[in-house]
Computed example of a mutant assay.
Amino acid sequence: MSDTTASLRHKIQSAGDLQSVVRTMKSLAASSIVQYEQSVLALGDYARTVELGLSVCFRGIGHADTAAGDVRGAEADVIGAIVFGSDQGLVGQFNDLVADHAVKTLERLTDPPKDRAGKQLRVWAVGERVQAPLTDAGLTLAGSFTVPSSVAAITALVGEILVATEAHQRQGELSALHLFYNRPSSAAVYTPVDQRLLPLDAPWRRSLAEAPWPTNNLPEVIGGDSGADSGTLRALIREHLFVSLFRACAESLASENASRLAAMQRADKNIEDLLETLNGTFHRLRQSGIDEELFDVIAGFEALAGSQRSAQGR
């Protein structure tokens, strides 16, 4: 069925309205990226302060094990995982990439030696859209969380995750806890990464204890309370866990909006090309209609002139 000028005009208007929506989403995604990236940058100084505090505490207790830092179920055969995805669509391969990276990494971590049974998994998903690729890969979810819609809402999500995981940690049911999320990348829009959050093992504590202090004034814990069960150490470890989860969530949200921005840019380009085609077709069809009307006028004029000449010849 051939298009008419009326139908083409309707298509052009619809495409223009859709382009307005796409450009609005582009603006929102771009502003959200800046918001989450700034939160990560602001968190950097605080994270550095927490690490310096942990460094002081670990210097005081040497390399002895600390109950506050290790998962009590270090010998347990359960690995926990938090996978950060999205609740909304229009993000390209964002959820598929992080889910695929998590599945492959967890398969490697749970691959048993010949003389041992394989480890079990307890997986939590952040975001509705990432749940499907995880379950399709055969993973059973222990729970799910809603993706925060702003920087201010990240704190509440981190609290929910800590409550859910610490319950299993206190019961000695976790041997490790990993975070899987997409991190903004300069080479590409984002890159899926894996961060082991727990246990806070001896090499990690040793690296902090041996790190050089930035000034010549060596600090010490107030009151000399620097043992493995000190309140100061436990508070700093809680802050370390909070910072790690907050940063992972913020970077995931920045990557999500970067992916959405890229998708909207492609959509905007496609709509621009469609509008160019529709406008060209509309103008050609309109010009064709004008030409036909002119030809009809000329033909009518010539027929009228011919009849008048015939009448005068009589």
Rank of each mutant, 00 (worst) to 15 (best):
S2T: 09
L8K: 08
L8P: 03
A15H: 07
D17V: 08
D17I: 04
D17E: 12
Q19F: 08
Q19G: 15
Q19V: 08
R23Y: 02
L28G: 12
A29W: 00
A30E: 12
S31F: 00
V34P: 03
Q35H: 04
Q35S: 10
S39M: 12
V40H: 01
A42S: 06
L43C: 04
G44I: 01
Y46G: 12
L54M: 08
V56C: 13
R59E: 02
G60K: 10
A64E: 12
D65R: 15
T66V: 12
A67D: 15
R72T: 04
R72C: 14
R72E: 08
E75F: 06
D77L: 15
D77C: 14
V78P: 10
I79K: 04
G80Q: 04
A81V: 05
A81Q: 07
I82Q: 06
V83Q: 11
G85T: 02
G85A: 08
G85N: 02
G85P: 02
D87Y: 03
Q88E: 14
L90R: 10
F94H: 13
D96L: 08
A99N: 11
D100S: 11
A102W: 03
V103Q: 01
K104D: 13
L106E: 14
T110A: 13
D111G: 06
D111T: 13
K119N: 12
R122D: 15
V123S: 09
V123I: 15
A125C: 07
A132P: 13
L139N: 10
L141N: 12
P148E: 05
V151G: 00
A153Y: 09
A153T: 02
L157N: 00
L157A: 03
E160P: 01
V163Y: 06
A167S: 09
H168S: 09
L174Q: 06
S175F: 10
A176H: 07
L177H: 01
H178R: 11
Y181W: 06
R183K: 10
P184R: 01
T191C: 11
P192V: 02
R196N: 13
L198S: 05
P203W: 03
W204I: 14
S207G: 13
S207I: 04
L208V: 03
L208M: 13
E210N: 08
W213C: 08
P214Q: 03
L218D: 08
D229L: 08
G231Y: 07
A235T: 04
S252L: 01
S252C: 02
S255F: 00
S255W: 04
S255R: 01
A258L: 01
S259F: 01
A263Q: 04
M264S: 13
N270G: 11
L275Q: 12
T277I: 10
L278F: 14
F282R: 05
Q287M: 03
E292P: 00
E293Q: 09
L294P: 00
F295E: 14
V297P: 05
E302C: 05
Q308Y: 13
S310D: 15
Q312L: 15
Q312E: 15
G313Q: 11
